[in-house]
Design a protein around this nucleic acid. Structure first.
Lengths: 370, 370
DNA sequence: CCCAAAATTCAAAGCGCTTTGGATTTCCTT
DNA sequence: AAGGAAATCCAAAGCGCTTTGAATTTTGGG
C-alpha cells in the first residue's frame, strides 16, 4: 500500500465530523444548475457542449451563451468517471533528493506542452524514485487519471514496456530499449547513426585517438551512441579505449572533469564526442584551460538537442554537432499520444529520426604526428 | 469555449454507438468487487483503506492483504468526485511554439517533485499561452482536477493573485508581485537584498561603472534585482546607466550578446551583475573573447540558482555569486501546498529567503584608472 | 389533413468512491 | 443477568457528468 495522502498526521485520529466539508463550498456552476437555468435537460446541455449532432443549432447557441455568462466549466473528475477519458497524458518524472534534475527534461516537456495545449490536454506528472518507476507507471495508469502514458529514459531491457503492453492504455516511448522485442510504439533518434557519422567524419580527418563523453551508462541512448562510435572507428581500424570513455550525468562539471582526465593520459585523444552541448561546455573549458586550441589541437563534436539555453553556434569556437530537436520530438510524441487517445487505437507506430551532422569550427584535421 | 478534446476530427459526425467503449474494458479491480471478494461492505473496505478508526484491526489486515493480491488501486477520479480532493497540485506552464523553455523551470519542478512524491501527490501541468495564464488558472481550478495551485513567473500587478484570492483553492506563489496587496501566501527570495549586497561589494571594491544582465523586464524578480542594484549604487554616489542594462530571457546567447555590447561602449563597465549563471556563461565568454581577465579587468557576480548542470565554482574563473537553491524553494513550496490541502486551511504564510553572497575569484578591485 | 420519418429533447441509469445515519454485535459495569 | 456504552459493520445517498432508450415535436409526402 503506497503512502496515501489520507495518512497525513492527525488524520488517523480524527473522527469524521463533516470531513473535508470545506471543499464542498468551492462550488462552481454545475451541469444541473446550468440546465435548470436554461430550462433544458442535462442531456441536451451536455450534448450541446460536446458537439453532438442531435441538438438544434439555436438551442446550442443558447447553451453556449449561458456557459459564457455563468463561467461554467465541466468537472473533469466527473467527466472522467463517466467517460473513462481524462484529457490527460501521464509521465513519471524520476526524482529524489540528491538526484540531479535534467535540463533536457524541461525542454522536452515544453515540446509536449506545445502540442497538448492545442487540444486542451494536460499532463499528470508523477514523481517517482527512479527504482520504483515500473510500480509508479502501473499505479498512475490504474489510478484512472491518465489516458495515455509517455515513457522516457529508456534502459536496456527496460521492464516498463513489457508492463505497458499488458495494460490497455496507449503509450509512446521516447527512445528505444535494447534487448526486448521492438513491437511497441516509439519515437527515437538514430543515435547509433549520429555518432557513427560523427566519428567517421573525425576519422576521415585523420584522427586516431578518440574519446567519448557520454550520458549515464544504463541509458539506451548512451549505449547506442557508444556503439555507433565504436563501429565507425572499427571501419577505420581504430578502437575506442575504455579509459577514453566517460559515462555520467550530462552536466558541465562532468564534461570538464572527463576532459581534464583525458588530457592527462599518455596519449590524449585528439577527437572527442560529447553526448550533449552541456557536456561539451565543460569539455571545452578543460581544453582551453590546457592551452589547447579547439578545432586545431583537438576536435570535438557534440550532440545538440537544440536547447535554447545553450547554442553550439555561439561557443567561442562554434561546435560541430549532430542535431535533433528535443522539443520537436516532444511535440511529435504529444501529437501521437493524443491521436491514439482520440481514435482509440494504438498502432505500434515507430519513428526513427536522423540527426543532422552540422559541421562548424570545432572539427579540423588531426594535428600532425598524433 | 476552449477547444475540447471532444472536438477532434471525425467526432462531430459520429453518432453514438458505444462511444469510447474501448476504454471500458481497461478494467481493474474496483471497490465493489473487492468488497464482495472479502464479504464486506464497500463502506468498511473504504474505511479500512483510508485509515479510519472504526474498523477492526484484523479486518483491516484482511483488506490490506486482498489489496496486495488483487492489485487494487482506487480510481482517483471517483475519489476526487466523492471527496473533492484529488491529491494533486496544479501549475500552468507558459509555453507556445517559439517560446523558449526555461532551464530553471525543470530544476524547480524537481524540487516540487521531491516533496510531492513523499505524500503520493502528483502534478497537473496545464500548458498555456503566456497571455492566457489567468484564464488557464481559473479553468484548471474549475476543472476540479487540482487541490491547490502553484503560481510562478510573477509580474508587476499580476492579475493571477487577485483572481486566486476570490477562489477557495489554496495556492502559493513563488516570488512576489509588485504593486498589489501582499496578503497572499508566497515564498520568495530577497532579490532586492541579494543584488544590493552584490552591487555594494563591487562598489566597495572601487568599481564605478556597472552593468546588469537581467531576466525579462516584465518579471518581478528582474525589477527587484535592478532596484537593489540601483539602490546600492546610489549609496555610493553611482548610477546604473540604462545602456548598461539588459533585459532578456536567461540564455547563454543573451548573456554573450549583452556583454559584447557593453564592452563596445565608450566607458565599458568594470562590474557586471548577472541574473543567472546561464547568462554569466555567455558573458564570461564575451569577456574572454575580448581578451579581458575576469576578476582583474572586469568583475562579475551572478545569481546562482544552484542548477546541477552549471556550477559557478567550476567556471574557469570561479564565479562570485548570490546563491539560493531553486530546488529547495520547490521543495518548500510543495510542502506548504500539501500541508494546506491536508489541513484545509490556508494561512497567508509568507517567507522571504536571504540569498548567500559567496565570494569567489570573479570579483576583484576595480582596475586602476577606471 | 393524416401518418411515418426525421429531428429534438428528456428521464433515468450508471461510473467508482466516500460519507451519512443506522443497525448489529461485543464488552463492561452494576 | 440487565442495561448502556463502545466497537464494528452496513445500506443507501450522493459527487457531476455521459449515455441509453424512449418520448415528444416537426417535417414532408400522399
Amino acid at each position: 500500500m503506497p503512502k496515501r495522502f489520507g495518512t497525513y498526521p492527525g488524520n488517523e485520529e480524527r473522527r469524521h465530523p463533516k470531513r473535508f466539508e470545506c471543499f464542498k463550498k468551492a462550488k462552481h456552476v454545475n451541469l444541473k444548475q446550468l440546465s435548470q437555468l436554461l430550462g433544458l435537460s442535462q442531456t441536451t446541455v451536455s450534448r450541446a457542449l460536446n458537439g453532438y449532432p442531435e441538438v438544434n443549432a439555436e438551442t446550442r447557441q443558447r447553451v453556449l451563451d449561458a456557459v459564457r455568462e455563468t463561467g461554467y466549466r465541466p468537472n473533469r473528475a466527473a467527466q472522467r468517471l463517466a467517460t473513462g477519458r481524462a484529457g490527460s497524458i501521464g509521465l513519471v518524472m524520476p526524482t529524489a533528493d540528491g538526484i540531479e534534475s535534467d535540463v533536457h527534461f524541461g525542454e522536452f516537456l515544453a515540446g509536449l506542452g506545445d502540442e497538448a495545449v492545442k487540444h486542451d490536454f494536460h499532463f499528470v506528472i508523477n514523481p517517482s524514485h527512479p527504482e520504483e518507476e515500473v510500480a509508479t507507471c502501473r499505479r498512475l495508469v490504474a489510478s484512472g487519471n491518465v489516458d495515455a502514458l509517455f515513457l522516457a529514459y529508456m534502459r536496456e531491457k527496460d521492464p516498463r514496456i513489457a508492463m505497458m503492453k499488458t495494460l490497455k492504455t496507449p503509450f509512446v516511448v521516447h527512445g528505444r530499449s535494447i534487448g526486448v522485442p521492438t513491437d511497441y510504439p516509439y519515437l527515437d533518434i538514430d543515435n547509433t547513426g549520429a555518432f557513427y557519422d560523427a566519428a567517421r567524419l573525425l576519422a576521415q580527418l585523420g584522427h586516431r585517438h578518440f574519446a567519448l563523453i557520454n550520458g549515464p551508462d544504463y541509458l539506451a541512448f548512451s549505449i547506442r551512441r557508444k556503439k555507433g562510435t565504436v563501429q565507425a572507428l572499427a571501419e577505420h581500424g581504430l578502437t575506442l579505449r575504455e579509459d577514453c570513455v566517460q559515462h555520467s550525468q550530462m552536466t558541465d562539471e562532468h564534461g570538464f572533469r572527463a576532459m581534464e582526465r583525458f588530457l592527462q593520459l599518455e596519449t590524449p585523444p585528439t577527437a572527442v564526442l560529447c553526448s550533449s552541448t552541456v557536456l561539451a561546455l565543460g569539455a571545452v573549458r578543460a581544453i582551453n584551460q590546457a592551452g589547447l586550441k579547439l578545432g586545431t589541437d583537438i576536435s570535438l563534436i557534440a550532440h545538440d538537442d537544440v536547447l535554447p539555453m545553450l547554442k553550439p553556434e555561439n561557443f567561442m569556437v562554434p561546435l560541430t554537432t549532430t542535431r535533433s530537436s528535443l522539443r520537436a520530438a516532444g511535440q511529435r510524441i504529444a501529437r501521437r499520444l493524443i491521436a491514439d487517445i482520440l481514435t482509440l487505437e494504438t498502432l505500434p507506430q515507430q519513428e526513427l529520426w536522423k540527426a543532422d551532422l552540422i559541421v562548424r569550427a570545432s572539427t579540423g584535421p588531426a594535428p600532425a604526428g598524433k
